[in-house]
Design a protein around this nucleic acid. Sequence first.
DNA 1: ATAGGGTTAG
Length: 608
Amino acid sequence: MTTTSHFHHLLKKCTNLKQLNQIHAHLTTTGLLHLDVRLLGRLLSSAATSDNLHYTSLLFSQLHHPNIFFYNTMIKAHSKTATSLNSISIYAQLLRAGILPDIYTFPLLLKACTQVPEAFPQGCSVHGQAIKFALDSYIYVNNALIHFYSINGHIKDARKLFDTSKDLDVVSWNSMLSAYARIGDMATAKKLFDEMPERNSISWSALISGYVQCGLSKEALGIFLRMQVELVKFSDITLVSVLSACAHLGAHEQGKWVHGYLKSNEIEVSVFLGTSLIDMYAKCGEVDLALDVFNGMKERNLLVWSTMIKGLAMHGRGNEALDLFFHMEKAGIVPDDIAFIGVLCACTHAGLIDQGRQIFDSMSSVYGIVPKVEHYGCMVDLLARNGMLNEARIIIETMPMQPDALIWGALMAGCRFYQNVELGEFVVKNLIQLEPENGGVYVLLSNIYAASGRLEDARKARELMETTGATKIAGCSSIEIRGKLHEFIVGDKSHPQIREILVKWEEIERFLSLEGYVCNKTEVLLDIDEEDKEHALAKHSEKLAIAFGLLSSSDGVAIRIVKNLRVCSDCHHVTKLISRIYNREIVVRDRTRFHHFKDGKCSCNDYW
DNA sequence: ATAGGGTTAG
């Protein structure tokens, strides 16, 4: 008797196939397996959790009269795999054997159906079966149904089940909450969160990840803070979302805090956490710390590698990114379409035209990946950035899909850099067709005309913008000081220290003019992503942020700024000068990449 | 001896 319970214990802990086989052999030779059927059940259950479907099926086939528990275990074993719909046929088998399904059967079947995106009809028929056996209102089944409908985007069906259910627990609320979060309805998600009779850490995580996915990273960090104040325990899953929020915001100190927390609690850096940490450090301007995390990781999947590659590319360290890519290939990891965006981006910033071409070709010839519009975009960027404007234009005209605004924008950046007004005008005309509501495009057109002396056309373009009601995204720069984010929007004077900031800016301007700086208002072309030149150039949001950064941080500390648009050339020039005058490193993340300003120079070599 | 909710890269 004690020996059987000993084996029960052993099996419960065992997930390793080899050990399972050993125990199995032992039980068979000693005849224990036949004495105690429950041991066989335990064995089957452990086999199912060890994810070895073949072995599990073998065990199952040895059972003469499997009961509902054995069938459920088999359904569970299948539900986790790519062929999860096999569990439906096990269900059919069960019915044929004259066995009644129970409340555990349906959640398992529904899980199998959510595994396969196109299995919505099968899931519906499982629902029908649950109704037929009058098990649909059991809380486990009901919760699984809510989850199933919400995953498939049928949120109304999920809500109906939720509203009519007599029996709701935290799990039901969490399912509904994450359903709204998933479709981006954060107002309803927050409402549910507030109304919940009981919350657990999963409720908090669901809310946080919802905010992050909607781009409301500040709210996400706010909720995380509240979570800590209310002493709710958080898991590494929560932290993955939190790190993602830090990455979006460039919340360097808060991100570092999370890393410190992981270290001091000796939490192992999983692939998920590692990816988030690498991305966070890269997007906060600390590529070298990202590299440290990368090098310290035991296990690396494609996402880990491509996040690191993209991180290096963002910082203009194209050669290292490329090395890493070849390393990855050697490690036997097969790149996907997203990984290629990272490497192509790296080629662009390192000016590696031939390498870029080769890699682009290898995409389809070696890996069988059909290039998407983003990949053509990288090629246009690569060529345009290196002066081959015509070739870039030919790519746009011959690629197999419709060009989007981003791809024209890449060509535009080249036109601006190489002062090609004629091609620029052509590009802008295409952009207006594509995005008539984007005010930036009209500003751009107007500037092009102004630059070529066609002042009347320039005025008309401005008027057109006003009559069509197109609006331009306001420039916004943020800076984190002692863990708090400060935002500066162009023309906005609501910051409590705005007076001091403006005084500081005056000081900066005095130093600038001593350096012989004159405000560059004659820039020929204005990039679509740049802030509107009509607003006083001196008030561009990053200038305020830099002034504030100089005011609020001590010497030797790098100033880190995140900007929502591209840096304009005047701000770029000014920032270079400031970095020398004040002997300060300034790191600016703009829409597309990083600029590390140091000693009057920028890491982008003045091309962005 | 069995079930359900939160997870990262463009």
